[in-house]
């Protein structure tokens, strides 16, 4: 069925049909000297960059729409009248209840993600050398670091949602602890909304990345890439994983530092 409809020269022999076509107009050229898969991954990541760019731009607009706390950092208090100082919100660490450790846990998460990026690039490097055992080893490390990161994020969300014991007195006179999509103890409601959406969307990306890496590990173990003659799939998943790390670099700066 397929042969009767595909374009082929009249005098085509069976051998000609089976041979790969490498001419310019047969798709033999690689634009940008990059393979189809890698190029498409780059274009996907570019579109994803615009999605995250839209999130962070919305964050910038909404933050500038709200008032700024003008006093010294030590006098800071939670209020819907001004945007919270991030280090006053994110100052908890698992197992150290009640200790003020500004940004310590997010520092830990950032380090974990940088480590996962390094182990990922080591897996790609091992793939270039056709070293199956090394690819497996570094993929496992990357999966481990990715899982630690996403668990840390789950803990941070839990803490953010449950809030501190003191809570904040709301406009109706009641004390509110933690945060949801319409109310939070930390400041304007939109602050919590942006936290949930931006870190949530990033966490979803990390989760997808872990799923892809687990699949890559299974395929490597089964020898799929070895039979194929190259480990390009690890490179493509690697591009995605580094992009997720890159997004965290921006989220870290604009949500936690600035």
């Amino acid at each position: 069925m397929a042969h009767s409809t595909t374009l082929q020269p009249n005098a085509a022999s069976a051998a000609y049909v089976d041979a790969p076509r490498t001419g310019t107009w047969d798709g033999g050229n690689e634009p940008f000297k990059a393979s189809y898969g890698k190029l498409m991954m780059w274009f996907f990541l570019l579109s994803d960059a615009f999605t995250f760019g839209a999130f962070l731009t919305a964050y910038g607009l909404i933050r500038h729409k709200h008032g700024v706390f003008t006093g010294e950092a030590k006098d800071f208090f939670f209020s819907t009248a001004h945007w919270p100082i991030p280090e006053k919100v994110f100052n908890a660490f698992p197992g150290l209840h009640g200790v003020d450790l500004p940004l310590a846990f997010v520092a830990f998460m950032t380090m974990i993600l940088i480590f996962s990026s390094v182990t990922m690039v080591l897996a790609v490097e091992a793939g270039h050398r056709m070293d199956k055992a090394d690819v497996q080893k570094w993929l496992l490390w990357t999966i481990l670091f990715g899982s630690i990161f996403i668990s840390s994020q789950a803990w941070e969300w839990t803490h953010f949602i449950n809030g501190t014991e003191a809570g904040t007195r709301m406009a109706d006179g009641t004390i509110f602890h933690g945060a949801n999509l319409t109310m939070n103890q930390y400041g304007p409601p939109l602050f919590a909304d942006l936290f949930f959406f931006i870190t949530g969307f990033h966490g979803t990306h990390v989760f997808s990345g872990i799923c892809l890496l687990v699949w890559c590990f299974i395929a490597t173990t089964n020898g799929t890439f070895e039979k194929r003659g190259h480990y390009e799939m690890i490179e493509k998943i690697g591009l995605y994983w580094h992009f997720v790390d890159l997004v965290w670099v921006f989220v870290f700066t604009f949500f936690y530092l600035v």
Binding site: K33, A34, L46, T57, L61
Partner: peptide, 29 residues
């Protein structure tokens, strides 16, 4: 380490984001 045309294909569209951020942060204030 990719070819120049690929580098520019990725970098030029992201430059639009810089404009978007500047425009909307000003608008927010």
């Amino acid at each position: 380490h990719e070819v120049k045309s690929l580098i520019w294909t990725i970098l030029v569209p992201t430059a639009l984001l810089v404009w978007l951020v500047v425009a909307l942060v000003t608008e927010g204030s």
